[in-house]
Design a protein around this nucleic acid. Structure first.
Lengths: 256, 256
DNA sequence: ACAAAAGTGTTTATAATACACCCATGA
DNA sequence: TCATGGGTGTATTATAAACACTTTTGT
């Protein structure tokens, strides 16, 4: 008799995973002057979640996060940082879980897998979304960027995970210019400022911002941008990796 | 036939735990002008480890951390904060594990339990060590405070966990005066300054420190200390909880 | 010529730093 | 009365904030 369950081919894969432990990734990009988050739509229903995955029996947790990031975005690595572990016993609502799993034949061992209690570790990734090629996973039929200011409702505690990730960015921001990884290789000062404003949710003074960034020495000024509007052409900048390393050693603050 | 294994009475208890997931606590106190860490000595051998434990099937991870803290120190709660999750596959060295477990009859299910791969979440706790009553757990025969500057070698990746915890304190320190939880209810300004210096590993200017702390308004000045040396008696201070709450809302920095 | 955006400069306010001064106390 | 540690004050420097001035460019 033919196996009609589309998931049973994954059974072997799931036997090779650490039970009870998952990873959720908050993958953040920047477009249209707003932060964008990569989210998945579950198959068949209007339920959205963060990209996630599990840890193989012989795999470091960090390696699993890198693998999951790559499988959703195609990216080898950008900024990836563990920020918190979520361990409430009821964090995965039973009702939402059953609704989400109705697409799956409930008799499979796969459904049993998903009905476990999971403790989930959150990883924050900042990426240049133009370099990403979003791909859904086996439970989802869409993988899309959504603006952080009009994010759809997320399953389980995933909204809380996003909130914690955003708090983590803001703290890190005072120490590291991590936002560079959200921008393309060349960018204008205005691009960088708008990005900081999107993160900090407040306006920054243009002149002071420019001076502070330039004084830090982490940017290299390039040629002026050719295409332009009816105004003075802005310089393009790129990131000075060597200066940045030195900057880190000092451990001083940055923009607040 | 009598059961001669002293651990078999715990078998039921271990069946009630989430597999693969552990908690390690970095419990920090302050004495002799140095930070002190609570560590356990394994039964029968000269191996030291952080206090740790596991999560019950129906228990939130944070609750488990509170329970573990209480069972080692007797304290209901002070400052307790999750700081990182350690998930390397080889984080618990096989050799060290076997040596540590030789006290246990290897045929017991308990030994099997400990031989799993564990992902461990670290919790940082800051306590007034004079209020603690350290108690060993079932695997250890001593539970002691050790100065951070002459800590014994620790098992597994526990030294790395301590290092990460100390980094976490230093970052938090810029935002919150969390160190108050390390001191007794009443303390002098010098006590507080010495504590900050122990954490930050650098000297602070006495006058400026005093002004900065007083300006923040989180301390209430009490009567002068009676017992003293051949000099002006210092004021005692206590923590102003109400002002502290307001201080938190502003989210501004503190001492650096 | 003008509006718009970019780059730079100036002024003011605030905070950090270094250190000086005086006070209280017990030997 | 003198050494010691405690509390406060002051001058200096560094940083942040507000905003003004000038330049470039397409229309």
């Amino acid at each position: 008799m033919a196996d009609t369950n589309p998931f049973s081919k994954y059974d072997f894969y799931f036997k090779n995973l650490l039970p009870g432990q998952s990873i959720d990734c908050v993958i953040i990009g920047y477009d249209q002057e707003e932060l964008q988050i990569l989210v998945l739509k579950w198959k068949g229903i209007d339920t959205w979640s963060l990209p996630g995955g599990f840890i193989q029996l012989d795999e470091d947790m960090d390696s699993a996060a890198v693998r999951i990031l790559k499988s959703r975005t195609g990216l080898d690595i950008g900024f990836l940082d563990q920020f918190y572990t979520f361990g409430n016993k009821d964090r995965r609502s039973k009702d939402e879980l059953i609704q989400g799993l109705k697409i799956i034949n409930m008799n499979t061992s796969l459904a049993q897998w998903f009905k476990q209690r999971f403790i989930s570790t959150g990883y924050l990734s900042l990426v240049d979304l133009k370099k990403c090629d979003p791909k859904p996973d086996i439970l989802s039929d869409a993988c899309e960027w959504k603006s952080i200011i009009k994010l759809p409702g997320l399953i389980f505690d995933h909204e809380q995970i996003v909130k914690k990730a955003l708090g983590h960015i803001r703290i890190q921001l005072n120490y590291l210019p991590i936002l560079i990884s959200l921008l393309p290789d060349k960018f204008t000062m205005k691009d960088l400022q708008k990005l900081y404003e999107a993160i900090l949710q407040k306006q920054l003074d243009r002149g002071n911002f420019q001076k502070k960034i330039l004084k830090s020495g982490i940017l290299i000024r390039l040629e002026k941008q050719l295409l332009g509007g009816a105004h003075k052409a802005p310089y393009l900048y790129k990131f000075d990796v060597v200066k940045y390393e030195k900057f880190l050693e000092k451990g001083t603050g940055f923009i607040s």
